[in-house]
Amino acid sequence: NRLGIIYEIQGMKAVVLTSEGEFLIIRRRKDMKVGQQVSFENEDIYNV
């Protein structure tokens, strides 16, 4: 599992900021809110 803070939500995608200072786009889940810490898997990351 990886951890990140939700920075922005766009439709079915969420932008998270990881503890390494990396911004990633992941698959959104219904319970996500901006500012929330979430765990996610590598499979949830969109390749940009």
Rank of each mutant, 00 (worst) to 15 (best):
K13S: 09
E20N: 11
S39W: 10
G11P: 09
L24P: 00
I25D: 09
I9E: 01
N42L: 11
R29W: 09
F23N: 02
N47W: 04
N42T: 12
E41K: 14
I5V: 12
S39D: 06
G4M: 02
K33E: 15
Y7C: 14
G11V: 05
S19N: 14
M32P: 01
K33L: 13
Q36P: 00
V16I: 08
I5T: 07
N1G: 10
L3K: 09
V38F: 03
I6G: 00
I6D: 00
L3S: 11
K33H: 11
V15K: 12
E43D: 14
V16S: 00
V48C: 15
L24F: 12
R27G: 07
R2Q: 08
I45N: 02
V15Y: 15
I6E: 00
E41Q: 13
Y7K: 10
K33W: 12
E41W: 06
N42F: 12
V48L: 09
Q10I: 15
F23R: 05
Q37K: 10
N42C: 12
R29I: 06
S19Q: 15
V38E: 01
E8Y: 07
I25W: 08
I26T: 01
G4H: 01
I9A: 02
S19W: 04
D44T: 02
I6A: 01
G11N: 10
G11L: 11
R29C: 10
E43Y: 04
M12A: 10
R27V: 08
V38T: 07
M32I: 03
I6W: 00
E41D: 14
D44E: 06
G21E: 03
S19D: 14
M32A: 07
N42D: 11
V34Y: 05
A14Q: 01
F40S: 02
L24Y: 06
V48Y: 02
T18M: 04
V16M: 03
E22C: 13
M12D: 15
R2F: 13
V38Y: 09
D44Q: 05
G11W: 07
E8R: 13
M32G: 03
Y46F: 15
K13V: 07
F40W: 09
I25H: 08
D31A: 08
L17Y: 07
I26Y: 01
D31P: 07
K13N: 13
V16Y: 00
V16L: 05
R28C: 15
S39M: 08
V48A: 08
Q36E: 10
V15W: 11
R2Y: 12
Q37P: 05
Y7R: 12
I25Q: 11
S39Q: 09
R27F: 11
V38L: 08
M32N: 02
E20V: 06
N47R: 03
G4R: 00
K33T: 12
D31E: 11
E20Q: 08
Q10R: 13
K33R: 14
V16E: 00
T18P: 00
V48E: 13
Y46T: 12
V38A: 06
D31M: 08
M12Y: 14
I45C: 10
I26R: 01
L17T: 06
Q36W: 07
I26S: 00
Y46R: 07
K33G: 03
Y46L: 15
I25S: 08
G4C: 04
I9Q: 01
Q10A: 07
L3Y: 15
F40C: 02
E22R: 08
E43W: 05
S19C: 13
V15M: 14
R29P: 08
E8H: 09
E22A: 11
M32S: 01
Y46Q: 13
R29Q: 08
N42E: 15
V15E: 02
Q36S: 13
I26E: 00
I45M: 04
E20A: 13
N1P: 09
E8S: 14
D44G: 02
K30Y: 06
N47P: 11
L24C: 09
D44F: 05
E41P: 06
L3T: 12
N42Q: 14
G21Y: 06
F23K: 11
I5Y: 07
M32Y: 15
N47G: 10
Q37M: 15
I5A: 05
R27A: 11
G11F: 07
I45V: 08
